[in-house]
Amino acid sequence: MISGDAKVAMRARAVRKSFGALEVLSGIDLDVREGEVVCILGPSGSGKSTFLRCINHLEKVDGGTIHVDGHLIGYEDRDGVLHELHAKALARQRSEIGMVFQRFNLFAHLSARDNIVQPQRLVRGAEPAAARARAQELLEMVGLGDRGDAYPSQLSGGQQQRVAIARALAMRPKLMLFDEPTSALDPELVGEVLTVIRKLAEEGMTMIIVTHEVGFARDVADRVVFMDGGVVVEEGSASDLITNPQQDRTRVFLRRML
């Protein structure tokens, strides 16, 4: 369990985001402490993925602020005015935040190993030998130590997602974001990916996971956040929220999922 005075890894305040006339996020407040695993549940279109994408500035917020590890994401605060960061500073911020996508997004022209080696070389300036050694170590950690030479198209969805997790971990991120990591997988491949995420949780990695796997959320999350209509409807410890939801909307959603 996370002690009450652990450092805040991610702090979101009054985050708003619209696509055209449609407001997707209507003021999100959320704190995630270091070492905490937070699962975000909610129906499609509730804004949970958009919120996750705001945390590393893949989407620009229209209002509110997000801090990761004490740094304001995407902007520089100069006398109360927020100036958007230049590409280089933004890239530096993003390199501290790992992200795993629903559709894996492995680099199609690189082998599994090179998918893990290239970012270390380009972003961290790692030596080739060190980068390769770390890639092998991570491939073994996700159970793919013998698949380093395979290209993404030669791997199953579950294998691709495990390589994608290894790639994100290679940057030694302070925070990991998972955007529905098992939604694009065949049912029999979901388990192998969840096993890897569970292992990370046990190692104390700070993680925010958008998922539809309610059972997994109950097992692995320290806290569960239920979002609907662009707001946080309810949050609480995993067992409390899932077994004893307080809000009608949460109850309706969980009844449909379980």
């Binding site: 590393n56 590409a87 530096r92 970012p119 380009l122 972003v123 994100a168 940057m171």
Partner: peptide
């Protein structure tokens, strides 16, 4: 998604264009 993955890893725009 290739561009997004590279951006999320901390690639700069030039690196995304040339390497990805």
């Amino acid at each position: 998604g290739q561009r997004e993955a590279a951006a999320a890893l901390g690639y700069r725009p030039g690196q995304i264009a040339v390497r990805v």
